[in-house]
């Protein structure tokens, strides 16, 4: 197990370098950061040259990348053009997004798995068909539609929640945004659990459990569910990474000042430092989440042994 973890951590290095290099190149090559800084007007050539020198933009790209990475490893993600430290932006944005992700994951686990178990055990019945249809609708409708609709109905018409989340973004204000963010994954978790339950319900060891005279709830929770959740846990684990970085639309709709919001602002204003910094952290989050999923897999299924 220890050797496996070390090997996986070493494998992360090339992935990390590749991913950050790509995003660095894309941001640098595709747009001129200084042009974005001056807004609509043409920049004053003298100011532009001074800024370029100040930010090191007159140097070759590979050298910029190396300098940047050197700074990152000493904990310095640079300064945004408006003078704010990127690390400060992160300190305010990440806790908000982490709270939002927790809300979303909790919804996925509770609602997704409960619906999945119910439909999986009642395959072909009306409950199953209606939930299945509902998941299809949720998957098919894009988040910006679900989000705006939810905001309109719950926030504006019924006034059950604040349509716009306050800067502090406490948990209770994140419930509806969390549900919107989770909606598509929730539908996938439901379908995945349903299939897995239905498949395992016909397996020999479930028949054995019934033949042993175990009560139905014990057969389901101890024998059926434990085996059926292995693929679901994998999906939810990888989804953590996706939710952390993929909340751009949801955060925009509900005015949540999290990672997605900062990334959106950074891209809009061509703020290289912000974008590259946040993406670098997200890459790490994604890699670590994947490693944890693989380790969890071995805990859930004893047949899998890493050496």
């Amino acid at each position: 197990m220890g050797r496996y973890v070390i090997r996986r951590l070493l494998q992360m290095i090339p992935v990390f370098i590749g991913a950050t290099l790509l995003i660095f190149l894309m941001v640098n090559v595709m747009g001129d950061p200084i042009a974005g800084l001056c807004g609509e007007r043409q920049c004053d050539p003298a100011t532009e040259a001074r800024l370029r020198q100040e930010f090191g933009l007159d140097q070759p790209v590979w050298q910029q990348y190396l300098t940047y990475m050197g700074h990152v490893f000493s904990g310095d993600f640079g300064t945004a053009f408006n003078g704010q430290k990127v690390i400060d932006l992160m300190a305010s944005a990440f806790p908000v997004t982490i709270r939002l992700t927790i809300v979303a994951i909790v919804f996925e686990i509770i609602i997704g798995i409960i619906f999945g178990v119910i439909t999986g055990l009642r395959r072909g019945r009306p409950v199953d068909t209606s939930v299945l249809l509902l998941t299809l609708v949720v998957i098919a409708v894009p988040t910006f539609v679900t989000g705006l609709l939810a905001q309109l109905v719950f926030g504006v018409n019924w006034q059950l929640i604040r349509p716009s989340v306050s800067p502090a973004a406490p948990f209770d204000e994140l419930i509806l945004p969390g549900l919107v963010l989770a909606s598509v994954s929730l539908a996938y978790v439901t379908r995945l659990t349903r299939t897995s339950i239905a498949e395992n319900a016909r397996s020999d060891y479930v028949r054995t459990a019934v033949a042993k005279g175990l009560p139905r709830h014990r057969v389901i929770t101890r024998h059926l569910l434990r085996n059926s959740l292995i693929p679901v846990v994998t999906f939810i684990g990888t989804d953590i990474g996706a939710l952390m970085g993929g909340a751009i639309v949801t955060e925009r709709i509900f005015n949540i000042h999290g990672v997605g919001f900062q990334l959106y602002q950074g891209i809009l204003r061509q703020n290289t430092q912000t974008v590259v910094g946040f993406v670098t952290v997200l890459v790490i989050v994604f890699l670590v989440a994947n490693l944890l999923v693989d380790l969890l897999y071995a805990v859930l299924d004893p047949r899998i042994r890493y050496a």
Binding site: D204, Y205, T208, G213, N227, P302
Partner: peptide
């Protein structure tokens, strides 16, 4: 079931729960 009458199945590998 299990207490007064019990059953032995053909394929013990698939009939035993792999994760317990």
């Amino acid at each position: 079931r299990g207490a007064e009458m019990a059953m032995i199945f053909q394929d013990a590998l698939s009939s035993l729960n792999p994760v317990l």
